[in-house]
Design a protein around this nucleic acid. Structure first.
Length: 519
RNA sequence: GCGCCGGUAGCUCAGUCGGCAGAGCACCGGACUUUUAAUCCGGGGGUCGCAGGUUCGAUUCCUGCCCGGCGCACCA
């Protein structure tokens, strides 16, 4: 058998000699400055490879014939054949002149077997120099061991990248939550279930796209940097554009741009993208989060409710193979149709209070809010107290999928009024497992009403409400050209992912959640 | 912002009622050609989150700070 390291590696050259010379310098530097023995040990190994003319970091590619899992699943047809796979070494079991090792690639794990009388003494010794964490490519024959495990008997291998730092422990994995978030790559390497979670997240988004694409929606991209933010009630991040010397806002929602597209004649549009809200961080909020917004012309909120429940059931069915999910201690059935309850009825059910009885009496609202144990500010108005009661008293009880419908106009500045009760809007929110996952309405398309609502928000702003909706004249202008009756929907992808992966915290479903920098 | 909990070896964790800092895995050396948390023998590895204070002596007690988790509050 051929010895390691001739083929697949760069030919020796002047460059190489220089590298070796450089290595001498680096080696002494390393031994002098690097005090971590685990690190310096691995660095020394790297330098030894280089001394032998093998520099893993000069390798630019490796052709694989199979993924690890393919070899295992197609053993019958691959037995005895030569295959090439690449991945990270995660474990060694050395037995003198025979070594087993585990190789992990994106598909899973496969066992390698290296025998001294197959690869030769020099290569066998070099294999022994490898560390867990190193990335290698191998060529070998598919076989089964005595215990029946599908294994590649290696006759050639290439070091493709050296790991200078050791991996977290193989058995317990990486548990330190802080390290898991700060160095997510380690989390992904050591905790397969985390990797699976993020694959699932990708599939959830894929399924949403498929669902909407099949219904004739087109996916669009609208500005993230916005001169006027809007579409939600939240505080924005502010940034600055130097060339135009203007402040810009990171969007808190894409809503107003998507509705401009409805004005422009796209009847079904959606966007999946990041929103930014300058608010606190907790287990349900990250300052940047992913939202789906979809708009359908000539539809109302009843159509959107149908769309929402069908979409989420479809996503669950596609990704999980079932519409019955387990979230924390609850078993939840996502099968449509979902329960529909009027917001006011729900408030009455869980607080015993009929908010309609003191609609214009802010003072009484604050008093009742306090009685309910809510935090109430002296400036709070009726709608604010109602919203607080909804979040604290009602939402935590909405475990099975529920649409709360018909929201007061005071807290819905972009939603169309109900024809039979202009103080209420055709708005709903969807709740699952005590989480708000959807917010939707028949879109307000009356430019005069929209302008008045903006002006109302402006008054709130002047009174110090930093989350009031800003005035967007350009959007009003768009409405003045005529927007068809339209239903719109927003779904929090992170929260939906939490539900479908049974994750208690939003940080578990965001690859790199916001943390304070170390030190 | 408040409360509770946590931060000890690369990782997972013990521990010290104030007196030389521990285990397993990982690592290094040795044995071993079918293991799979391989095994056996030997070895090295620590700013006990950071800074002060008390003390003969602090990883341990006290104070402050940093980072994180959970809950509450704020944002609303």
């Amino acid at each position: 058998m051929k010895k390691l390291a001739d083929e697949g590696q760069p030919a020796k050259s002047e460059l190489l000699k220089e590298n070796v010379k450089e290595n001498e310098v680096r080696r002494s530097e390393a031994t002098m400055t690097e005090h971590d023995p685990l690190y310096s040990d691995r660095l020394a190994k790297l330098l030894r490879w280089r001394d032998k003319g093998i520099d893993p970091f000069t390798v630019t590619k490796f052709d694989c014939s199979h993924l690890a899992s393919e070899i295992v699943s197609s053993f019958e047809s691959l037995q005895g054949q030569t295959v090439r796979v690449a991945g990270r070494l995660t474990a060694f079991r050395a037995h003198g002149k025979l070594t087993f090792a585990d190789l992990v690639d994106s598909s899973g794990r496969i066992q390698l077997m290296v025998r001294i009388n197959t690869v030769g003494e020099e290569a066998y010794q070099q294999f022994g120099e490898l560390d867990t964490g190193d990335i290698i490519g191998v060529e070998g024959v598919v076989t089964k061991t005595r215990t029946g495990e599908v294994t590649i008997e290696v006759f050639k291998f290439w070091l493709l990248a050296k790991a200078l730092r050791p991996l977290p422990e193989k058995w317990h994995g990486l548990k330190d939550v802080e390290v898991r978030y700060r160095q997510r790559y380690l989390d992904l390497i050591s905790n397969p279930e985390v990797r699976e979670l993020f694959v699932k997240r990708s599939k959830i988004i894929q399924a949403i796209r498929r669902f909407l694409d099949e219904r004739g929606f087109i996916e669009v991209e609208t500005p993230i940097l916005q001169p006027v933010y809007g579409g939600a009630l939240a505080r924005p991040f502010i940034t600055h554009h130097n060339a135009l010397d203007m402040d810009l806002y990171l969007r808190i929602a894409p809503e107003l741009y998507l509705k401009r597209l409805i004005v422009g004649g796209f009847d079904k549009v959606y966007e999946i993208g990041r929103n930014f809200r300058n608010e606190g961080v907790d287990s349900r909020h990250n300052p940047e989060f992913t939202m789906l917004e979809a708009y359908q012309a000539y539809a109302d909120y009843h159509d959107i409710m149908k769309l929402t429940e069908e979409m989420i059931a479809f996503v669950a069915q596609t990704v999980l193979g079932t519409t019955t999910i387990v979230y924390q201690e609850h078993t939840i059935d996502l099968t449509p149709p979902w329960r529909r309850v009027s917001l006011m009825e729900a408030l009455k059910e869980f607080t015993g209070i009929d908010f309609r009885e003191f609609r214009s009496d802010d003072e009484k609202a604050r008093k009742i809010g306090k009685e309910l144990g809510l935090s109430v500010e002296p400036t709070d108005h009726w709608g604010r107290v109602l919203d607080e009661a909804l979040k604290k008293k009602v939402v935590p009880n909405l475990i099975q999928p529920t649409f709360l419908i018909d929201y007061p106009v005071e807290i819905s500045p972009l939603a169309k009024r109900k024809p039979d009760d202009p103080t209420m809007t055709e708005r709903f929110q969807g709740f699952i497992g005590g989480l708000e996952v959807a917010n939707a309405f028949s879109e307000l398309n009356d430019p005069i009403d929209q302008r008045e609502r903006f002006e109302m928000q402006q008054k709130l702003r002047e009174r110090g409400d930093t989350e009031a909706h800003p005035l967007d004249w350009d959007f009003v202008t768009a409405l003045e050209y005529g927007m068809p009756p339209t239903g719109g929907l927003g779904i929090g992808i992170d929260r939906l992912t939490m539900l479908l992966t049974n994750s208690p915290s939003i940080r578990e479903v965001i690859l790199f959640p916001l943390l304070r920098p170390e030190e």
